[in-house]
Amino acid sequence: MHKNIKMGILASIAVILIIIFLFTDMGNYWEYVVPNRAIKILAIILTGTAIAFSTVVFQTITNNRILTPSIIGLDSLYMLIQTFLIFAFGSSSLTVMNKSLNFMISVGLMVLFAGLLYRFLFKREGQNIYFLLLVGLVMGTLFQSFSSFMQVIIDPNEFQVVQDRMFASFNNINTDLLLVSFVLILLVSLYFARFIKYLNVLSLGREQAINLGVDYNYVVKRLLIVVAILISISTALVGPITFLGLLVVNVAYQFFKTYQHTHLIFGSILISIIALIGGLLIVERVFTFSTTLSVIINFIGGVYFIYLLLKENNSW
C-alpha cells in the first residue's frame, strides 16, 4: 500500500470519529452539547499533535523506541507543582481555581526545569544523551517522593483534588487556555520547521549525523527544547498521559514501515487523534465514565509495549 493511501485512511478514520463524537447521542440540548464537544475535540487535536510530534522527535534523537519525553521528569514535576499548590494554598485557593495562572506557572516551571537540565548536562564534556535522561528520571523520582509526602499530609478531601490531577482529562477545558496553547504550539512548530530535514539523518546516530554535516549539539539542544515546550504545554493543558506517545509512535512505525519523518510525524499525529477520540468515545459512551481516558491509554500503551518487547524484534 502506498504511504499516501495509508495516510488518507488514517485521516478518514479521524474525521469519521470526530463526526461521530460531535453529532451522535446529542440529547435535547444540542446547541449546548455540540460547542462543548467541539472544544474537547480541539483540545484533543492540540495535545495529540504535541505529544505525537514531540515523541517522534525525542525517539529519533535518542535513537530508541522505548523512551518518551516525559521520562526526563516533566510529569513528576507537574504533579509536584499541583500538589504543592494545593498543599500550600488549599484546593479552593486562587491558583488552582485560576486556571490561567496555574497553566502559566506549570508551563514556565517545566520549561525552566528542562532548560536547566539541558544546560547543566550539555556543559559537560562527552555528554551522553542517556545520561541526561537518567538524571532527569532520578530528578523525577525525587519530585515524586516530595509529592507523595505532601499527599500524605494534606486533608483527604484535598487529596481527591490532587488525585484528579494525576490523570489527564479533557473535561472543563478553558477556551482561553486552548487558544494560548494553540498559538504557542504553532509558534514552536514554525521554529521547528527548519530542523525537520535533520531528523532522517539524526536517526542514523550521532556519529553518522556529524559525518554528514549536522551540527549535532546545536540541533539536538534546540530539538530537545522544542520537545520540552510541547510536552509542558500539553501536560499543563490536560494533565499527564505518559504512554500516549509511546503507543502512537510505535503504531506509526509498524503501520508505515519507513524511516521518513514526514510520514512518521503526520502519521503519529493522526493515530494519536484517533486513539484519543476513539478512547473518549469508549470511556464516555461505553464505560460511561467509570474510568479515566488517560488510565486506559496508559494501560493499552503499556500492554502493547510489553507485547512489542516480547515479540522477536531487535530494533532497540
Binding site: 522505548i66 523512551l67 518518551t68 521520562i71 505518559t242 504512554f243 474510568t291 488510565v295 486506559i296 496508559n298 494501560f299 500503551g301 503499556g302 500492554v303 509495549f305 510489553i306 518487547l309
Partner: peptide, 12 residues
C-alpha cells in the same frame, strides 16, 4: 521505563 509500564497496568 519498564517499571513505569507495569505501573500503568497497576493503575488501570
Amino acid at each position: 521505563m519498564f517499571g513505569n509500564i507495569i505501573n500503568s497496568i497497576t493503575t488501570f
